[in-house]
Design a protein around this nucleic acid. Structure first.
Length: 422
DNA sequence: TCTGGGGTCCTAGGACCC
DNA sequence: TCTGGGGTCCTAGGACCC
């Protein structure tokens, strides 16, 4: 039988913070989104308090004070590094790995003997070598593996590993009858309430529903989910990550921004980040979209949002050319008299750098100069830290920069921020 | 009275995920 | 005062073509 494992780090960002401050073990801890906006990771103690995922932090401050909740700003440099360590280690247990997100991956364990024991070994090795606790679900399809992982997390007697393949069909169905349909991977809020309206409330009911009816009501995506619940693997492991088809960099500002000059700085900064990602995957972009918006939560304020897509003369990965286009778009959508809360850029029409279309009019010398300059820029910033060299247009004062009230150190990637042991 | 059929490409919007 | 960021896939509808 096919055996697909889903390994998921427990409260990943919180676990990363605790790793370097072990005194926080057992205490309620949250990690906040950019700008300290929402709660994006909660320790078990915080979940037990009933605090919801993605809740706005400013509404919770009183509650947090009462319960002594410790809040961290997000530190993606740290999380990405620890994630890489976990993933690299996990890749040793199977030739077939799909890194699905920063804190979870699929492994194909088909053919391995004694899977529960095998998974326990994986778990304890990750804990010992990196220090991050994980849960593991095993099943014949990805969708079921996600569910098995959910069970491993919620039902303590499974000891963090749940293998559906080791159960009888009847045992599995009994378990599925206890889980709400909204827990299924790919069934979001909208579909949940529509399914409930059709009388499909539990996972077992969805599993047993008619494929034809589901297809007619919801389309092929839901039809596939039902097949996967029945143990028919429709989704393969993607072990090579294809290059992104779009690259987005957008951010809310630390304070409302009204001046075009400040928006220009932000747009140059975001375009620069996006262009770095573009070059990282050896691609060129043929288009760039820029957008700005006011704060939709402030209903009393005048609202405005506008986006503009610009097509470049030819595909490029040169930060300067992308910025020039982005700025021209920004100047066209900008209206004075609004308090802007967010800006963003999106690179589109992405192609492989190797597939750059050649024309009679190519200025090869200019292209080579551009490539050399971008390579040097990236090299310095990789070596000396991001932002060491930047376009002057990004500005220095940066009043729009995001708030990060309590960010931890980059313990694993900066010499100056290593842990100090007394 | 009656106005083809089939295909592609693009865009916008919806839904979902972490 | 204060509400994240980055991505994918699917569908419907319009434009256009032969």
């Amino acid at each position: 039988m096919r055996a697909i494992a889903l390994i998921d780090c427990n409260n990943f960002y919180v676990s990363c913070e605790r790793l370097f401050q072990p005194g926080l073990e057992g205490k309620p801890v949250v990690v906040l989104s950019n700008n300290d906006g929402c709660v994006v990771s909660r320790s078990q103690e915080v979940k037990d308090l009933g605090l919801k995922m993605a809740a706005p932090w400013f509404q919770l401050k009183d509650l947090a004070k009462r319960h002594g909740i410790i809040a961290f700003s997000s530190n993606y440099t740290l999380y990405a590094d620890l994630s890489n360590r976990v993933m690299r280690l996990l890749s040793q247990w199977s030739p077939d790995q799909e890194v699905y997100s920063i804190d979870e991956c699929f492994l194909d364990l088909t053919g391995m003997a004694d899977l529960t024991q095998y998974a326990q070994t994986i778990r304890s090795t990750i804990k010992q070598c990196v220090g991050i606790p994980v849960c593991i679900g095993i099943a014949p399809s990805k969708t079921l593996a996600k569910l098995a992982n959910h069970v491993a997390k919620k039902q303590k007697h499974y000891d963090s590993v749940c293998d559906f393949n080791a159960m009888t069909a009847r045992e599995l169905d009994t378990l599925l009858a206890q889980i709400e349909v909204g827990e299924v991977w790919g069934v979001g809020r909208r579909s949940t309430s529509r399914l409930q309206g059709m009388g499909i409330v539990t996972v077992l009911e969805l599993k047993r529903s008619s494929a034809k009816r589901v297809r007619a009501e919801f389309g092929v995506v839901m039809e596939r989910i039902v097949a996967e619940l029945n143990g028919v693997a429709c989704l393969e492991l993607d072990d090579v990550t294809p290059p992104r088809q779009q690259i987005i960099c957008s951010r809310s500002f630390g304070m409302p921004v009204t001046l075009l000059a400040d928006l220009e700085q932000a747009v140059i900064a975001y375009t620069s980040r996006a262009a770095e990602k573009l070059r990282d995957q050896h691609s060129l972009a043929g288009g760039i979209q820029v957008y700005i918006r006011t704060n939709p939560h402030k209903e009393k304020d005048p609202q405005y949002q506008q986006a503009m897509l610009l097509h470049l003369f030819e595909p490029t990965d040169d930060t300067r050319l992308l910025c020039r286009a982005a700025l021209s778009g920004l100047q066209q959508v900008y209206r004075s008299g609004y308090a802007y809360q967010k800006a963003g850029v999106m690179l589109t029409e992405i192609i492989a750098a190797a597939a750059r279309p050649r024309t009679l009019f190519d200025d090869v010398a200019a292209q080579q100069k551009s490539a050399a300059l971008m390579e040097t820029l990236d090299h310095i910033n990789r070596r000396m830290g991001s932002g060491t060299v930047q376009l002057l247009g990004e500005g220095v004062r940066k009043i729009w920069a995001m708030r990060r009230g309590n960010v931890s150190q980059r313990y694993t990637t900066e010499w100056g921020e290593l842990v100090v042991v007394r």
